[in-house]
């Protein structure tokens, strides 16, 4: 098992290539569909590094209190993912169901909240 840091570095490198579907699969199979949605719709703004405006915005907002990289969050409930995708925030627009269907959004929310303890 690679370290989380190594995995993110790898993800970052591959995302920067925009070769989105070919990232080596390090997540459990139940998260594969969600990660596919993440790579297509979220990563261009939320992958690691300030060249991704979503990440830069979150880095600025949290000032090191927590990571600016969504994939590293451990306090991201599925409900927050779903609300934000359907309502947008700041310059991030909302996403329609023809872009991210309800089923895809469920998968995405499961993936992004996989490290968040359920209450």
């Amino acid at each position: 098992m690679k370290s989380a840091g190594g995995l993110f570095a790898l993800a970052s490198l591959l995302i920067s290539m925009l070769a989105l579907p070919v990232i080596a699969d390090e997540v459990a199979p139940e998260y594969a569909a969600g990660r596919e949605v993440y790579l297509k719709w979220c990563a261009p703004c939320h992958a690691p590094g300030i060249t991704h405006p979503g990440t830069h915005a979150l880095m600025t907002k949290y000032q090191g209190v927590k990571s600016g990289v969504l994939l590293e969050w451990t306090d991201l409930p599925a409900s927050t993912v779903k609300y934000t995708v359907r309502h947008g925030i700041s310059v991030m627009p909302q996403f329609r169901k023809t872009e991210i269907s309800d089923a895809e959004l469920d998968a995405l929310a499961r993936y992004l909240s996989r490290n968040t303890p359920q209450r």
Partner: peptide, 12 residues
């Protein structure tokens, strides 16, 4: 293609 230009108006 990228979405880098959305830094315009985003929090920085």
């Amino acid at each position: 293609p990228s979405l880098r230009a959305f830094s315009i108006g985003a929090r920085t």
